[in-house]
Write a protein that binds this DNA or RNA. Structure first.
Length: 831
RNA sequence: GCUCGGAUGGCGGAAUGGUAUACGCGCAACACUUAAAAUGUUGUGAUCGCAAGGUCAUGUGGGUUCGAGUCCCACUCCGAGCACCA
């Protein structure tokens, strides 16, 4: 009687068995070579696991399982990135404490992940909202603070005037509040920032030492946006030719074009406006423009499609040091306050934005760079490339490259490097995050301001932010107090500000009354170091033991979503490099290799979303087809890096494949028997293909070759057990449950997942016959079977015996022939 | 606008410069069945032909080559990221 394949039964059974035997746990300091595989830990939302999680986790699971079979000591951990807005919003709506919601959600996620058979080491589970975990998140913040890498600054935040709360960028949809649709305004508020810009060069240089997919590297490079140029100071004079102090400093990467600079532009908040107000004749007009510009949100300012606006400053003008000409100064919001010096030299002939502005305000356009040495046309045209310098006095004729340094010297420019990267806004006015472990002490602030403090009394950070005192190692974790309402207050402060008892405390430095910082950390904090914690998740004395980190770090292979390749990757690299610099972490770069999977879209290629009702719940797929079928389907559905639409019908195909595997294993396996050469050839071809494809994440073609092998076996009456067992092993990482069951049915007592990975043998990879394609003038006319390795002349002889080939050659003049051994023969005849 | 990917049957896709369309889905016919589902077998790019066989097809237009989906040039469309960054 044939035993039926019932995925649900065997999956439950093996899940328990694996857990009780701990076959997937990583061993600290094992003599085996370590391999650290990492996936982005999920945010445990109320919706449960998403098909996208399954895609990335299955891929890394396959790699982790293959590495184990190859003899590595593998660490494949998981945890919960559980602080965040959706949980907080749910808590606000239902009045349930976020920690209760989190507990419920992580339980669901854990159950789902276990059901899918991922080989996580469950003993190393971490949770960012656990005080034992966020104690160290706070500790790392204190390290950053005392090293002078955190500072408080007034900033504009998104403010909903109806709800009277500050909004994170993620909560602003098309310039409006996500909840009520009211237009978001800008409100000034003090925020903590982390000085990630101090690490710009290290973050850039580190990229050369790691193996990330190209897209991730370029995205990081663009985000950091390093550009080298020169600072040039333009003197300014009043209408009465009275020179003014300071001048206006500009940053330019194209100092070679300075002879073509016909005006300057400063941003609406530029200090020269206020400083030289007395000389500015049209002050009212300029003030009105500045106020209007300030009102525009960041989003509106960024809209490049709109026409440029600006106002000419009357009463003062600048001198172009290069050609000694007098040039006007404008105020315009197309110049950003936050980049460079907040002022630019405009060269309309060689910069698109300057060109647009000059056209609109009818300003002179002087061409000073020509594309090539021959055509030195002085047309009123825009050209942003490099070339040969023209109309530039003694520099005329030089290449742009040479002129850069020569002209910089001539106008007393200082070389300067600028970055697009901005400091990391680190405070949030929300409840469900890590409290920032600082207190404000007036007494200490006064002593610092008066300079009456002793030399080593305060850290760098405390001197930088007078009065803000770091809590000591012993005072963390600062745990989240219970509050009645989780909504941010109407003043825009965090709900923690409402708990007087918690806010009022004493200064750890001097004992004077002090109050706590009530802002919390952003989502990114907990995930910026979790990979370190996995190496030693229970440590109470440090974020992780140095020796354990030395054994496990760096992460050998990190896979995650493309949406995290800029921020999360950059932030976590920043923290790791910093912790390495202060001697806490043994390696500088946290991840050796980074890959990304494509998104899974709903059927028809539209995004999966609750409102569209096209979200696929992995549970329901497991219910019908089993976990193995879901895993195989998600790996087979298409190229791993590409986004792809869900197709419910195709899962059936994968399920059929596993059914065939079951049927063969339960009906056709013979313990004794010699495999045919053809079967061995097929087996070893499959082993080779699957081994290679896993490494390049070409899971879809790996599965297709497994299917081809199964189709062959299905046509045979008997398969020798030895051959079959090799096949089961290479299928095991993809479908861990069914392979484990069939393996035990074949009489094995140990898990298939601890078996060695099969290696292919070259001697089986060669077939004795090959098909040779016969072409005439590059067109296929016949395919013949020849012994492998047949030489040209012999092959030609056999080919010409073939009628359908011969008739195209007969009676024609043969010009030449091309022969590629075992592949092709191509005869060129005169037509 | 810039950067990085893509474009191949009815659909998802495969293809170190060497048999384009592997593998899967779908569809059709047949077998099993009282019937259906499930399963199995066979077929399945378009077109001409009774057939043998031929011709045309990898977004568009050129080029290199004995030979191009693959390499080079130009263009069109789609997706992702960045975006007034001087």
């Amino acid at each position: 009687m044939k035993k039926k394949f019932l995925p649900k039964q065997i999956e439950k059974k093996w899940q328990k068995e694996w857990e009780s035997k701990n076959i997937y746990s990583a061993k600290d300091f094992s003599k085996k070579k370590k391999y650290y595989t990492l996936v982005e830990f999920p945010y445990p939302s109320g919706d449960g696991l998403h098909t996208g999680h399954v895609r990335g986790y299955t891929a890394m699971d396959i790699i982790a399982r293959k590495r184990r079979m190859e003899g590595y000591n593998v660490l494949y951990p998981i945890g919960w990135d559980a602080f965040g807005l959706p949980t907080e919003n749910y808590a606000i709506q239902k009045g349930i404490h976020p920690s209760v919601v989190t507990k419920k959600n992580t339980d669901t996620f854990r159950r789902q992940l276990k059901a899918l058979g991922f080989s996580f080491d469950w003993k190393r589970e971490v949770n960012t909202t656990d005080p034992e975990y966020y104690k160290w998140t706070q500790w790392i913040f204190l390290q950053l603070y005392t090293h002078g890498l955190a500072y408080k600054k007034k900033m504009y935040i998104n403010w909903c005037p109806k709800d009277k709360i500050g909004l994170a960028n993620e909560e602003v949809v098309d310039g409006a509040c996500e909840r009520c649709g009211t237009k978001v305004e800008q409100k000034e508020k003090e925020q903590w920032l982390l000085r990630i810009t101090a690490y710009a060069d290290k973050l850039l240089a580190g990229l050369d030492t790691v193996d990330y997919i190209e897209a991730a590297k370029t995205q990081q490079k663009n985000w950091i946006g390093r550009s080298e140029g020169a600072l040039v100071k333009f003197p300014i004079v009043t209408a009465q030719k009275k020179p003014l102090m300071d001048g206006v400093e500009v940053f330019t990467t194209r100092v070679d074009t300075i002879f073509g600079c016909t005006y300057l532009v400063v941003n609406p908040e530029h200090p020269i406006l206020a400083t030289h107000r007395a000389y500015i004749q049209n002050w009212d007009e300029i003030e009105a423009y500045s106020i209007q510009a300030k009102k525009k949100s960041e989003l509106q300012r960024i809209d490049t499609s709109k026409e440029k606006t600006g106002v000419l400053i009357q009463g003062i003008h600048a001198h172009n040091l290069a050609n000694k000409k007098e040039i006007p100064i404008f105020v315009s919001d197309y110049v950003l306050a936050t980049y460079g010096t907040g002022a630019i030299m405009a060269v309309p002939a060689h910069d698109e934005r300057d060109f647009q502005f000059a056209k609109k305000f009818n300003l002179p356009i002087v061409s000073v760079v020509s594309k090539d040495a021959q055509s030195r046309l002085d047309k009123e045209e825009m050209y942003t490339g490099e070339g040969f310098i023209i109309n530039s006095g003694t520099f005329t004729g030089m290449t742009s490259k040479h002129a850069k340094s020569a002209i910089a010297k001539f106008v007393h420019g200082k070389s300067q490097t600028q970055y697009h990267l901005r400091d990391w806004v680190f405070s949030r006015q929300h409840y469900w995050g890590e409290p920032i472990p600082l207190v404000f002490c007036n007494a200490c602030a006064e002593r610092i301001q008066k300079g009456t403090h002793t030399e080593n009394e305060f850290s760098k950070g405390e001197l930088l932010n007078p009065g803000w005192i770091a809590l000591s190692h012993k005072d963390v974790p600062v745990t989240l107090p219970r509050v009645r309402k989780y909504e941010p207050t109407h003043t825009g402060e965090s709900p923690l500000a409402g708990i007087k008892k918690w806010v009022h405390t004493t200064c750890p430095k001097c004992g004077a009354p002090a109050f706590r910082e009530t802002d919390t950390m952003p989502n990114w904090a907990g995930s910026s170091w979790y990979f370190l914690r996995y190496s030693d998740p229970k440590n109470k004395k440090a974020c992780a033991d140095y020796k354990k980190m030395k054994y496990w770090m760096s992460v050998d292979w990190y896979n995650g979503g493309m949406e995290h390749t800029t921020l999360h990757l950059l932030y976590s690299r920043f923290w790791n490099i910093f912790l390495h610099d202060i001697g806490v972490v043994p390696v500088s770069e946290p991840y050796k290799k980074r890959t990304s999977h494509g998104m899974i879209l709903g059927e028809g290629g539209i995004k999966m979303s609750k409102s569209r009702g096209n979200v696929v719940n992995p549970d329901s797929v497991v219910q019908i087809y089993g976990a193995d079928a879901l895993r195989v389907y998600e790996m087979f559905m298409g190229p791993f890096t590409q986004s792809i639409a869900w197709d419910a019908g195709s899962i059936a195909g994968c399920s059929r494949f596993l059914n065939k595997v079951w049927d063969i294993s339960t009906q056709k396996i013979v313990s004794r028997g010699t495999p045919t050469d053809t079967l061995l050839l097929q087996l070893h071809t499959t082993i080779k293909k699957v081994s290679e494809d896993i490494e390049t994440m070409s899971f879809n073609t790996a599965i297709s070759s497994l299917m081809i092998f199964i189709n062959t076996c299905y046509g045979l009456d008997q398969i020798p057990q030895k051959v079959w067992e090799q096949f089961l092993r290479i299928l095991a990482p993809f479908a861990p449950f069914i392979t484990e069951e069939l393996w035990s049915q074949l009489g094995h007592t140990k898990s298939i997942h601890t078996e060695p990975w099969p290696s292919f043998e070259k001697k089986y990879l060669q077939s004795t016959v090959t098909s040779l394609v016969c072409q005439v003038n590059g067109k296929k006319r016949a395919v013949i079977e020849i012994p492998t390795g047949t030489e040209k002349e012999a092959a030609m002889k056999i080919a010409l015996q073939n009628d359908s080939f011969c008739k195209y050659v007969q009676g024609k003049e043969v010009l030449r022939s091309i022969f590629v051994p075992d592949k092709i023969i191509n005869i060129i005849v005169k037509e």
